[in-house]
């Protein structure tokens, strides 16, 4: 009989669970019915929470892998200041980030390029906020004897016209070209600054890696490879090349001698609500800009 009692309890638990499931189903149905209104509701709800119950807000941020390290570190320090903030940062690329904020899937997008006209047409109420500047370094394996390329050589390598390292002063080995996916802000800037001036396109044979960290790792793993990454991602596992004799360093980018310079943005849909505004304000503050500098990007104004 004790077994019966025990199974009775199991059954009651199961029924309770059914009730929970039903409740969820009901919730789904109602939110389905309200889906058009609910998205605006969420925003006002967040606002109210921030205003009334002290500082509590969930911020979902998604976008550029270039911008992600800055926002992640800022989120970490920011939540130490305001423990009620729950910030999650997804590094998924600029294009997906803009789409995600535009279609209301996240609160803040990140982009490592200017927004495109078609994006503004599709989501007219997107508001980009410039939070930092950056450049792109052309990187090879540290063991590669090549230290310098001209911009045109880089364009030809990525177009698949130069296919062997010996053509640019390296060993007699094939070049493994690693590029970013379409929609990436870094790829966009790279194409704009390097490929377009010579009327070339990135070869379809190139290996596509999604995100700065993956390109960096792929280059570090392959002695014959060449890739391009954000300045903030350059570390000892890869070797940045001089372009037309100029090193990819912050001062050269600011002087304009290094040929690639770009802006980094966070993007909101419509005017930022108070919670978003607080976080963006932090990014733009001296403390936020200090993070930008520490991580190897270019701050908007001198901080030190």
């Amino acid at each position: 009989m004790s077994g019966g009692a025990a199974s009775g309890r199991t059954v009651i638990a199961a029924l309770a669970a059914v009730a929970v499931a039903m409740f969820l189903a009901g919730y789904l149905a109602s939110s389905f019915a309200l889906s058009s209104i609910s998205r605006t509701n969420v925003k006002t709800a967040t606002t109210t929470v921030v205003e009334t119950a002290g500082l509590n807000a969930r911020l979902n941020v998604a976008g550029s892998t270039t911008v992600a390290p800055i926002v992640e570190e800022a989120a970490r320090r920011f939540s130490e200041l305001y423990p009620g903030f729950r910030i999650s940062v997804a590094a998924i690329g600029s294009g997906p980030g803009i789409k995600a904020v535009g279609s209301g899937e996240v609160d803040i997008g990140m982009a490592s390029r200017d927004l495109k006209e078609e994006e503004f047409e599709r989501w007219p109420d997107l508001k980009p906020f410039r939070i930092a500047m950056d450049s792109i370094a052309i990187v090879v394996h540290p063991s590669n004897p090549v230290n310098e390329l001209t911009l045109e050589q880089v364009a030809k390598i990525f177009a698949g016209e130069i296919r062997n390292w010996k053509e640019v002063g390296g060993p007699d080995k094939p070049i493994h070209v690693i590029t970013r996916e379409k929609g990436s802000g870094t790829r966009d800037c790279f194409e704009h600054a390097v490929m377009k001036p010579f009327g070339k396109e990135v070869s379809a044979e190139a290996m596509v890696q999604q995100g700065n960290p993956k390109v960096r790792a792929a280059v570090a793993n392959d002695p014959l490879s060449i890739g391009y990454i954000s300045l903030g991602f350059v570390d000892e596992t890869v070797k940045p090349l001089r372009i037309d004799g100029i090193e990819p360093r912050i001062e050269n980018v600011l002087k304009g001698t290094y040929p690639i310079k770009r802006n980094l943005y966070v993007v909101t849909k419509g005017d930022p609500d108070p919670a978003e505004l607080m976080f963006i304000g932090y990014l733009l503050s001296a403390e936020g800009q200090k993070i930008v500098e520490e991580l190897g990007y270019i701050p908007l104004y001198p901080v030190s």
Binding site: I92, G93, K99, S103, R122
Partner: peptide
Amino acid sequence: DRVRVLTSTIVIEFNYAVW
């Protein structure tokens, strides 16, 4: 040769594709 498969195409492109 490198290839794409049906399933990997969905994972790679789902968050690039605009609604």
